[in-house]
């Protein structure tokens, strides 16, 4: 595909703030890994396997947080799409970034959960309510991305943005159902460690909190990066569209 020189010339560098954010979150994650692997005490009944908890739960927090980014982008898009086209495309980029981050974090949550479940429960997977709803969350945002892929014509299209925003709202309604399911249904998943009857030993708290901070910080940086990338793709597609309108005139000349 021939690249037009004008939009590429002002090729934006990776913002310094974002670079700083990625460095910080990597450092926090390394420190968190050290705390989780060497400092935190070994759990009494599960042994070392329990240490995966320090990554599994922060990732699940992220997986329950990023759908709201998608929802915010979707609602924002639906409110401004008839008034302010430029802002609507920003909202669409935000919604897309939120959906992809959700898919990434739910995948990581499911994988770490399975790695934990195999030694502790003796099975990789069980159709317990919490697991099922988490898988459902994964499927909803996979469906969201499939809808975008199917209705995308390679152009910047408000139709794709609007339709996927509608699906984003439907999917977000499922998120609270996921969160409440642990109390609604009988479940094999460990009771909520932070709010339920089981509690986290004070010596384990630092490792958990540092990892939570690290995963959230890293996720937010990745979200910003994906947003900027999508904005850039939109600008290039727009420039292409404008150029193809100009083309016949050039031929005539």
């Amino acid at each position: 595909m021939p690249q037009s020189s004008a939009p590429i010339a002002d090729r934006p560098k990776l913002p310094l703030l974002l670079l700083l954010g990625f460095t910080t979150s990597t450092l926090i994650l390394i420190y968190g890994a050290r705390l989780a692997l060497f400092v935190a005490p070994t759990e009494a009944t599960m042994g070392n396997v329990q240490r995966i908890f320090y990554w599994h739960v922060p990732v699940d927090f992220g997986a329950l947080l990023f759908p709201y980014v998608n929802l915010a982008g979707s609602v924002w898009l639906l409110t401004v799409r008839n008034k302010n086209q430029a802002q609507a495309f920003m909202a669409d980029a935000l919604a897309l970034a939120g959906a992809e981050l959700t898919l990434l974090y739910t995948s990581l949550g499911l994988i770490t959960g399975m790695l934990w479940a195999r030694p502790v429960w003796g099975i990789w997977w069980t159709w317990d309510a919490r697991l099922t709803t988490f898988l459902l969350l994964w499927m909803l945002y996979a469906a969201y991305l499939i809808l975008r892929r199917f209705s995308d014509s390679g152009q910047v299209s408000m139709q794709t943005a609007t339709l996927s925003a509608v699906l984003g709202i439907f999917a977000a309604i499922d998120v609270p159902i996921t969160f409440m399911s642990i109390r609604w249904w009988r479940t094999q998943h460990p009771a909520p460690v932070l709010t339920g009857e089981g509690h986290l030993d004070p010596s384990m708290v630092p490792a958990f909190l540092w990892n939570l901070a690290g995963w959230l910080c890293w996720g937010i940086c990745l979200l910003c990066l994906r947003y900027l990338l999508e904005r850039r793709r939109q600008r290039i597609a727009e420039a292409e569209a404008l150029r193809s309108i100009d083309l016949p005139l050039e031929v005539l000349r």
Partner: peptide
């Protein structure tokens, strides 16, 4: 309705919801 291969898309969207 307006997407490509809509017969396939409907179950993909409907089932998770």
């Amino acid at each position: 309705l307006r997407a490509r291969s809509r017969e396939l898309l409907l179950p993909l969207l409907l089932l998770p919801v």
